[in-house]
Design a protein around this nucleic acid. Structure first.
Length: 434
RNA sequence: GGCAGGUUGCCCGAGUGGCCAAAGGGAGCGGACUGUAAAUCCGCCGGCUCAGCCUACGUUGGUUCGAACCCAACACCUGCCA
C-alpha cells in the first residue's frame, strides 16, 4: 500500500482533516473503508463532483475500500451547506430517477469486483426511510446540542442571510447518521467530501464518538477554482459541465479542458488526473517553454475525456478537433470520411436533400445561436462563418457548391464554437463507417 | 394572527405616471490582438416578418388618453410583534 495521504497532499487535495497522524495510523493498520456521499440534485454528476469521486478511486488504488453513497434520502431534504438560500424541494419521483442515474455513473469510476477492496454503492434511503420520526429524535437528535449546530458554518451563514427551514437545519443529523450507519454496517470510519462538507462530516464524527465511543476521521478536498475566479466546471454558456454525454457532449467536454487557462493546468493535472509527479512536472515544464503548443491542456483533455467517456470517444473527439481547428482555411481538402467523423462529434442538424434553408435557419437550427436576432447581430459583427468563410448576408440561401462533398456544412460562431449540418441520405454512409 | 418592508431582464441592482425594452455593474457573446490561453481595447447583450411590431418589471383585476411606476385582491419572501 502506498501512502495515500502523502499522495493527496502533494496533489493539493487536502483542505481540512481531523488528526492526520491518527488517520495515517488507521490507514497503516490495513485496509480501511472510506465513504463519500453524492446528492441527487440533478440527473447527472458534473465535473465538480469529480474531485471527491476520484479521491475514492485514489483510496481504492492505494488498497482501501471505497463506498459511494447516493443520497436518496438526504436528497429529499436539501443540504444547506454552501448554499445562500433555501432549496426548492424536488419531487420524490425526480429524486428517484436522479439516484438511479447517478448510481450508474458512480459505478463507472470505481472497481466493483469481488476483491477484498471492491467498491460498494449505498443509498441512505435504505436506513433512513424505515426510521420513524420518534426513533430519529430519540436515537439521533438527542446527541446533537443545538448550540453546536448553530455554530456550524453552514447554519450560521444562512442565519445571517435570512434564515433556513427546520428541514435543512436537520440535514446534518441525517448525514451524521449515515456515517454512523456505515460504520456499523461496513466498519467505515473515514469520510471524505468537498470542503463545504466539513461541518457535516465533523458532526458525524461527534455522533460516532457519543454513540459508539470510537474515533472516526474526516478529510475534505478543496473547492477547485480557476485562476479567473470563475466557477470551475461551468461551460462557456454558463451551464454545468456534466458527465452524462447526453447533457454535455464528449466534444464539448474535451473542448472545455483544451481551453483551460495556462495558470490552471498544473493544479488540474494534479487534482483531476492520475498522472504521476514526474510526468506532470515534465508536462508543465514543456508548457512554460512552449505555451503555444498547449501540451498541458491537451494532456488534461485526453486524460479526463478518457476517464469519463472512454478511449474510443477521446480518439474520435480529438481527431475531430484536430481536423476542424488545425487549419483555418480550406475545409474541402479534408477527405470525406474524416470530415464525416469529425462532424459527427459536433452538435448539428440534418436537412432534406430538396430543402433550401437560409443561413439563419441553419445557424439557429443547429443550436449555435439562440435566436434569429442573435444571428443578425453576429453577422453584423462578423462573427458567423460557414465553412470558415464569414457570412455577410444571413438571409441568403446556401449555394450548391458550398456543400462539402455534396452533403456537409461546417458552421462556426466566433473563434471556436462549431456546429455541423448534414443533408440528404447520409444515414447509410454513416452507418457503414461505424 | 398583527404590523412593516420587499418581489424588476441570466445574476446583482436603479427606476416611482409619458423621454422605459427599462440606468449601472457582473456574467455571457462577437470583433481586434493572440496560442482554440490570459490581459487589453471596441461593439453587442428580450423576440420577430427588425426605420416597425410583439412580449416583458410576482399574479389577477382596476384607475388613466397613457402604468414597472397609482389602487385592490391574491401568492411568495424578509423583519418585528403575538
Amino acid at each position: 500500500m502506498t501512502d495515500i495521504l502523502d499522495e493527496l497532499a502533494w496533489r493539493g487535495l487536502i483542505a481540512q482533516s481531523t488528526d492526520l497522524d491518527a488517520l495515517r495510523e488507521t490507514l497503516a493498520q490495513g485496509q480501511a473503508a472510506v465513504y463519500c456521499g453524492f446528492d441527487p440534485t440533478a440527473r447527472s454528476l458534473h465535473v465538480g463532483n469529480l474531485v471527491p469521486l476520484l479521491i475514492l478511486r485514489r483510496f481504492q488504488l492505494a488498497g482501501h475500500r471505497p463506498i459511494a453513497l447516493a443520497g436518496g434520502a438526504t436528497g429529499m431534504i436539501g443540504d444547506p451547506s454552501g448554499r445562500a438560500s433555501e432549496r426548492v424541494l424536488q419531487t420524490l419521483d425526480v429524486i428517484g430517477q436522479n439516484v438511479q442515474a447517478i448510481s450508474g455513473q458512480l459505478e463507472r469510476f470505481l472497481d466493483f469486483d469481488d476483491g477484498p477492496n471492491g467498491a460498494k454503492l449505498a443509498d441512505n434511503l435504505d436506513w433512513l426511510a424505515p426510521m420513524s420520526a420518534i426513533d430519529f429524535l430519540r436515537d439521533v437528535g438527542k446527541h446533537f446540542p443545538v448550540n453546536t449546530m448553530l455554530a456550524k458554518d453552514s447554519v450560521r451563514s444562512r442565519l445571517d442571510a435570512g434564515g433556513l427551514s427546520y428541514t435543512e437545519f436537520s440535514y446534518m443529523l441525517l448525514q451524521s447518521y449515515d456515517f454512523l450507519e456505515l460504520l456499523r454496517r461496513e466498519g467505515c470510519s473515514i469520510q471524505v467530501g468537498g470542503s463545504d462538507q466539513w461541518g457535516n462530516i465533523t458532526a458525524g464524527i461527534d455522533l460516532i464518538r457519543r454513540t459508539e465511543g470510537r474515533p472516526a476521521h474526516g478529510l475534505t478536498v478543496p473547492l477547485v477554482t480557476s485562476a479567473t475566479g470563475e466557477k470551475f466546471g461551468k461551460s462557456t454558456g454558463g451551464g454545468s459541465l456534466w458527465l452524462d454525454p447526453e447533457l454535455t457532449s464528449p466534444y464539448a467536454f474535451y473542448q472545455y479542458w483544451i481551453n483551460t487557462d495556462d495558470r490552471d493546468v498544473e493544479q488540474y493535472l494534479k487534482k483531476l488526473t492520475f498522472l504521476g509527479r514526474e510526468e506532470i512536472e515534465a508536462v508543465v515544464a514543456q508548457g512554460v517553454e512552449r505555451p503555444q503548443d498547449r501540451i498541458g491542456q491537451r494532456r488534461l483533455a485526453q486524460e479526463l475525456t478518457t476517464l469519463v467517456h472512454g478511449q474510443a470517444e477521446t480518439d474520435a473527439v480529438e481527431a475531430a478537433s484536430q481536423a476542424l481547428f488545425s487549419r483555418d482555411g480550406d475545409l474541402s481538402v479534408i477527405e470525406e470520411r474524416a470530415l464525416a467523423g469529425a462532424l459527427a462529434e459536433l452538435p448539428g442538424m440534418h436537412v432534406d436533400l430538396g430543402a433550401a434553408p437560409s443561413l439563419v435557419d441553419l445557424l439557429t437550427g443547429t443550436g449555435l445561436y439562440a435566436s434569429k436576432g442573435e444571428v443578425r447581430r453576429a453577422v453584423a459583427q462578423g462573427g458567423a462563418y460557414v465553412n470558415n468563410e464569414r457570412v455577410t448576408d444571413a438571409d441568403a440561401a446556401v449555394p450548391e457548391q458550398a456543400w462539402l462533398h455534396g452533403r456537409f456544412l461546417v458552421l462556426r460562431k466566433g473563434r471556436r464554437s462549431l456546429a455541423a449540418v448534414t443533408r440528404g441520405g447520409s444515414r447509410d454512409n454513416e452507418q457503414s463507417n461505424g
